[in-house]
């Protein structure tokens, strides 16, 4: 057998898996997005009705805007928190044993399900919840704060809580690979702590930050359940539009929305990859 043939055969299993579980489903979604639907059935067709309606409706733009808003704010918070935590683990904690230990502590909440972690905020933030009754007993507020729950605040809080670890892990990984001599050199040359951070550590962490960013933005943009639960169904993002359509048997319309969302996310990722060449940096 020629070497080329062997190489093809070696690559085949992976290619088959990708075709069956990634390419085929997406192709199916794209095809169905051109189909038509009645109240209770879908029929094959090639029409642009679904897209026409999608782009013709002001709701679509509001909802996409809202989705970007959630993604951007969540990204900013997870980045700051994630970077700080990673920095502490990588540079403040000296022994490897402690670093690993504390890192594992960070992952403990992830031993329970996503939904449980999210829902447990609800009784905490509620009108008669722990947060409000504590604040009242301290005399900080007189009336319970209504905006703590079922608001943009609670949605973003849940997102940040759920996804910060996805920022911590890649940034921590990048930081651990930074040659400590570089930092010492910066100090020796008279750089302040901030200058070292900004001109040495941050640039070297870029790949980690970028991977974290991709994780967080794709997770937030594709979410529907967090928005539904934490906003008490009062806010919408693209995922909820899709899930509503599915509930009403409007698969073609759901597929069209999914295709647009997929393209949007791919564009965002392409733009991000323009900023940092992850392959080269890794």
């Amino acid at each position: 057998m020629s070497r080329q043939l062997v190489a093809w055969i070696q690559a085949a299993p992976m290619a088959v898996v990708m075709l069956a579980f990634l390419v085929a489903p997406i192709a199916m979604i794209v095809i169905v997005s051109f189909w038509g639907a009645t109240e209770y059935s879908i029929y094959p067709a090639f029409q642009f009705d679904n897209y026409q309606f999608l782009f013709g409706s002001p709701v679509t733009y509001t909802v996409f805007l809202n989705t970007f808003k959630y993604a951007a704010i969540t990204w900013a918070f997870t980045l700051v928190i994630g970077f700080t935590v990673a920095y502490f683990l990588a540079f403040e904690v000296r022994s490897l044993k402690w670093q690993i230990g504390l890192f594992l502590v960070c992952t403990i909440p992830f031993w329970t399900s996503n939904i449980i972690r999210m829902i447990s905020w609800i009784p905490f933030l509620g009108r008669n919840g722990l947060a409000n009754s504590t604040l009242i007993s301290w005399g900080v507020i007189d009336e319970p704060l209504e905006w703590l729950l079922f608001s943009d605040f609670s949605v973003i809080l849940a997102f940040v809580h759920l996804y910060t670890l996805f920022m911590v892990v890649p940034i921590f990984n990048s930081m651990m690979r930074i040659d400590r001599a570089l930092i010492e050199a910066a100090y020796d040359n008279g750089a302040s702590a901030w200058q070292t951070l900004w001109h040495v550590i941050v640039p070297l962490c870029k790949p980690g930050i970028m991977i974290g960013t991709i994780f967080v933005t794709t997770l937030v943009m594709g979410d529907f359940i967090t928005v539904r639960f934490m906003s008490g169904s009062q806010r919408a993002n693209v995922g909820r539009l899709i899930s509503n359509d599915i509930g009403l048997l409007q698969y073609p319309s759901a597929s069209a929305t999914a295709v647009v969302l997929l393209c949007t996310v791919l564009i965002v990722i392409a733009l991000l990859l323009r900023l940092v060449d992850i392959r080269k940096e890794l």
Partner: peptide, 17 residues
């Protein structure tokens, strides 16, 4: 279920959003 069900559903989505 109304004759205008699909229209209503779209309006409902707008209401939620």
């Amino acid at each position: 279920v109304m004759d205008e069900n699909q229209y209503m559903v779209r309006k409902w989505n707008e209401f939620i959003a």
